[in-house]
Amino acid sequence: MPVRAAAGAQASDLQDEKGETVICRGVEAHTSGPMIQVEQEAPDFRAVNAKMEEVSLSDFKGKKVILNIFPSLDTPTCALSVRQFNARAAGLKSTVVLCLSMDLPFAQSRFCSTEGLDNVIPLSVFRSHDFATHYGLRLADGPLEGLMARAVIVVDENGKVNYTQLVENISHEPDYKAALKAAQ
């Protein structure tokens, strides 16, 4: 059953031009557009892996996909979310976790290698305007303008979104339990 997390901004919270509202370093910030909604078809996007190869969401068709989206691995909460998904999603059948940020692929790869994280796939969207546009998660203003808001999206085997959470305060962790439940 599709679920939208209560912890995130709801459709009624949308700003006209600036999308969703989040708290970033103690101040209100806005995303570039409304976040994708449950039951929508997940738009395909391109991202770059550590080998500088393009990877698309469509490459994972037939699997459940958890999109762990965050501003940068150089922040404690972002790094923690990657570690948590690496540990918690390891046992899920036919499920892949894509960790998406604007970090360069080299930095993502170094982080995951150093940490021994091999149950997640780090992908950079630093040159992928399609992701930021279609998912509405690029920060349009505030201290981290240009990076992405913290969010989790679960896409089912058929490419439909069945869970979303826009984390209201970027310094907080996502609801791992709810996301993993949606991926079961």
Rank of each mutant, 00 (worst) to 15 (best):
M1K: 12
V3S: 14
A5L: 12
A6I: 09
A6G: 13
A7M: 11
G8S: 12
G8Q: 09
A9M: 08
Q10C: 10
A11K: 13
A11R: 14
S12P: 09
S12V: 14
S12T: 14
D13R: 00
D13W: 00
L14R: 15
L14A: 15
L14V: 13
Q15S: 15
E17G: 13
K18C: 14
K18Y: 15
G19K: 03
V22K: 00
V22T: 05
C24G: 00
C24Q: 01
R25C: 01
G26M: 01
G26L: 04
T31M: 08
S32M: 04
P34Y: 00
P34T: 00
M35A: 10
Q40R: 03
Q40H: 02
R46T: 15
A47I: 01
V48E: 15
K51T: 11
K51F: 11
M52Y: 14
E54M: 14
S56R: 15
D59Y: 07
D59Q: 10
D59P: 11
K63W: 06
I66F: 06
I66H: 04
I66Q: 06
L67A: 01
P71H: 00
P71S: 01
S72Q: 03
D74W: 08
T75P: 12
T75F: 03
P76W: 00
P76A: 01
T77W: 00
A79Q: 02
A79E: 02
L80C: 07
V82L: 11
Q84M: 08
R88C: 05
A90K: 13
A90S: 12
L92M: 08
K93R: 15
T95C: 11
V96H: 11
V96R: 12
L98R: 05
L100R: 02
D103K: 00
P105N: 07
P105T: 03
P105F: 05
S109P: 10
R110C: 11
R110W: 09
F111R: 04
F111P: 07
S113H: 12
T114F: 12
T114A: 15
E115L: 06
E115V: 04
E115F: 05
N119Y: 04
V120L: 08
S124G: 06
S124T: 04
F126E: 09
R127L: 13
S128L: 05
D130V: 14
F131L: 04
H134N: 15
L137M: 06
R138G: 08
L139S: 12
A140H: 07
A140T: 04
G142W: 01
G146A: 05
R150P: 07
R150F: 05
R150S: 06
R150H: 01
V152W: 02
V154L: 12
V155A: 01
E157I: 06
E157G: 10
E157M: 09
N158F: 12
N158Y: 13
K160Y: 12
V161E: 11
V161N: 07
N162L: 06
N162R: 05
N162S: 10
Q165C: 11
E168D: 14
N169G: 13
I170A: 09
I170D: 10
S171D: 10
P174Q: 05
P174L: 04
P174N: 02
D175M: 06
Y176L: 00
A178F: 01
A179F: 05
K181R: 14
K181I: 13
A182N: 04
A182K: 02
